[in-house]
Design a protein around this nucleic acid. Structure first.
Lengths: 193, 193
DNA sequence: CGTCGATATGCAATTTATTGCACAGACAAA
DNA sequence: TTTGTCTGTGCAATAAATTGCATATCGACG
């Protein structure tokens, strides 16, 4: 149940509306905990019912009212408790790698195109993360603890995107490469799963 | 609905029972598409009902019977179709990074311990993947297309684990580092999200 | 002798996540 | 003038994933 905690964590600094949270998630926490706006609204109701956040409606003319949520002491306590509990293992899902399990001569071009489009996706993400890094996190050692934690999230994002980009280049080269002549000398390796 | 396709892909080479598939998933496809055995059994029923796999019971004395599934032509067609469709974007979930958003002096030691245990997890995974690589995929250019695709999955795993390991080391150092004296000269950076 | 892990398959309940849609005003572009 | 996007919140239905349990036999361990 880390969705609720991802929201509580986002409310640590200041109060936010569901709409704000959805946008923040797109840029920051959402990188390693993707959440839709529907999930956020629903979870905010539950958190409010559980007394972990307090809701306050802000009336606006000219545009829809906002409901701003802030952490309660109980919410803060729930966060502290959660931090001492074991962390669930990371999960990673990449359909492209599943598809590559079926790679052969006949679908090669389709998959090459998919890898190319992945390459672009990761290049864009990398550029975005590096821009944030340059603007907001110039020297990590000078940051206070809270901001160091956020720096580390961004840092992970940058390292991951760079690695994935490098993988895309390798993959493009290897998939495009025609079948090599049989290796000389040492017998062929055992077929694997 | 990539779960069904992950299973079909696993049946490309030879027929397998649900139990086999669950074990294979733990080592190979499961790295980028984690699935439980309950999901596999249930999905196999659906695939059989849809005519994409054919079930055959293998009677065993001394231990429970196995139900072995093999791809049908229709299953193969479904796979080909899927390969031409757009691939869903990768997702990555890491609760530890969410927790780090709440980092402060008071929870520092708990989080350091969590990072250390992650470091170990990734070191173990890396060792496992490198062993498989050394044994089964010595020279990627010499592989046929199908095996190149699988090599690329493993390769992604290795690159990812190495990167994550490096991140763990950075994180351990930065989180443990005491707060530096205020930076000299250039004004302090704007606080970021 | 009892417990545990491996083999082998599966049901049922619950929790999470996704998808599609609804409402409603402001503002910009075609 | 219609179309589309942004702000803002939300419901409802479905799909997917997780958790817990059930069954049954073998062989190993203590």
């Amino acid at each position: 149940m880390a969705l609720s905690h991802a929201i509580l964590v986002s409310l640590l600094d200041r109060a936010h509306s569901g709409y704000d949270l959805a946008k923040r998630f797109d840029q920051t926490v959402g990188f390693f905990w993707p959440v839709s706006h529907q999930q956020i609204y629903q979870e905010l109701h539950k958190l409010a019912a559980a007394g972990r956040v307090r809701a306050e409606t802000v009336t606006q003319s000219e545009r829809p009212n906002r409901i701003v949520y802030e952490l309660t002491d109980e919410g803060r306590r729930a966060l502290d408790q959660w931090l001492t509990e074991p962390t669930e293992p990371p999960t990673f899902k990449e359909e492209l790698l599943v598809k590559l399990f079926a790679l052969d001569e006949h679908n090669r071009d389709d998959l090459l195109a998919e890898i190319r489009s992945r390459r672009q996706l990761h290049a864009e993400r990398l550029a975005r993360y590096e821009a944030i890094m340059a603007e907001h996190y110039p020297q990590p050692e000078a940051l206070n603890a809270r901001r160091r934690g956020r720096y580390l999230g961004l840092r992970m994002g940058i390292l991951t995107e760079r690695t994935t980009l490098a993988w895309c280049d390798e993959a493009l080269a290897l998939v495009a490469l025609p079948k090599a002549a049989a290796a000389v000398g040492s017998g062929r390796p055992r077929p694997a799963d």
